[in-house]
């Protein structure tokens, strides 16, 4: 008996979904749009944080040593510095390597200048990367007040300082904005979806009265709406994922190589694909939940007796 009723309410839900063409379309559209906006906000946040992390990795400070400091001395200093937990990596760049890097970009003017000088004008240096970009300030101060401060020619932190601070600032602001927008859009999406489904149910309120009079239990009246909610959520989630994929693909194709560089060598679409793994199942769950919870709450008032 239970199974036959469950099957009937399921069929009833499918019929409602099919028969109420316009209403279904409107409900699914709103739900799709909501999920799409949530997805877009999340994607921008995801790509943004990836870019920030990538830029952070590119930032470093380099300590250039005076020409008379020997390589072994520099390596000793390096080993000493690597004990600090704020520092994630230290790379030693000898003056020969520095010259090679300097000439590697193929700029003829640079090459001519080096030839004119007749010797390697560059100095050996240590390139230091911090675990947390906010610590560069501390590391720079440490270097300049260390026991080997006299052996250091320059710490280029001052030059990078503005850039680093700007990035720190940007990253935290981007996170705050992304989070606020995400929460706001999610709330709006929930409210709009709830309201649309309430309207859908409102348009059927007389039918609930008829069903009750005929002797349908509240559960029997509710179940088709539950299934309807599931279908709304499912269709909307799938549509939202499809739209977002299309948008990500188009954006990825039309964006220049700069974006790929900012993202650390991966294209935007590749970033999207790694995002999709979490996003798609989550959207489907959220979509179904939105549909089901909305219809559940909305119908309550019509089933008082």
């Amino acid at each position: 008996m239970k199974t036959i009723k469950l099957w009937r309410t399921f069929k009833e839900g499918v019929d409602n979904y099919r028969r109420n063409g316009w209403l279904t379309f409107a409900t699914v559209s709103v739900l799709t749009l909501s999920l799409f906006i949530i997805g877009l906000t999340a994607l921008i946040g995801f790509a943004g944080s990836l870019a920030v992390r990538n830029l952070e990795e590119k930032i470093s400070i380099s300590a250039t040593f005076k020409p008379d400091v020997s390589e072994s001395r520099i390596l000793t200093i390096r080993d000493e510095l690597s004990k600090y937990k704020e520092i994630s990596s230290i790379t030693y760049v000898s003056k020969e390597e520095a010259l090679k890097q300097f000439l590697s970009d193929g700029n003829q003017v640079n090459a001519d200048a080096v030839t004119a000088i007749g010797e390697n004008p560059l100095l050996s240096s240590l390139i230091i990367r911090a675990v947390n970009p906010a610590d560069y300030d501390l590391i720079a101060t440490k270097l300049q007040s260390s026991s080997y401060q006299n052996e250091i020619d320059t710490v280029n932190y001052a030059r990078n300082k503005k850039k680093i601070e700007g990035l720190n600032d940007y990253a935290s602001r981007a996170r705050a904005i992304g989070l606020t927008l995400g929460i706001a859009f999610t709330l709006i999406a929930i409210l709009i979806t709830f309201n649309t489904i309430r309207l859908t149910i409102y348009s059927h309120r007389q039918e609930f009265e008829v069903m009750r009079l005929v002797g349908a239990s509240n559960l029997y009246i509710r179940m088709p709406l539950f299934f309807e909610g599931v279908f709304y959520g499912l269709t909307a989630a799938v549509s939202a994922v499809v739209f977002l994929t299309a948008v990500a693909f188009a954006f990825s194709r039309n964006s220049g190589p700069i974006l790929t560089e900012i993202l650390g060598g991966t294209t935007f679409f590749q970033v999207y694909l790694s995002f999709l793994w979490i996003f798609a199942p989550l959207t489907i769950i959220v979509g179904i939940l939105l549909g089901v919870v909305s219809s559940h709450i909305a119908i309550r008032r019509y089933l008082k007796i």
């Binding site: 008829v210 005929v214 349908a216």
Partner: peptide, 28 residues
């Protein structure tokens, strides 16, 4: 119950409207 405004389900056919009362009841 029978009412002035019939209270039929507009989306269902005559057959389905009558069948609904039995479906609700769990009739095979």
């Amino acid at each position: 119950t029978v009412f002035q405004d019939f209270k039929l389900l507009p989306q269902k056919t005559a057959f389905e409207n009558i069948a609904y009362a039995l479906e609700v009841y769990g009739k095979p």
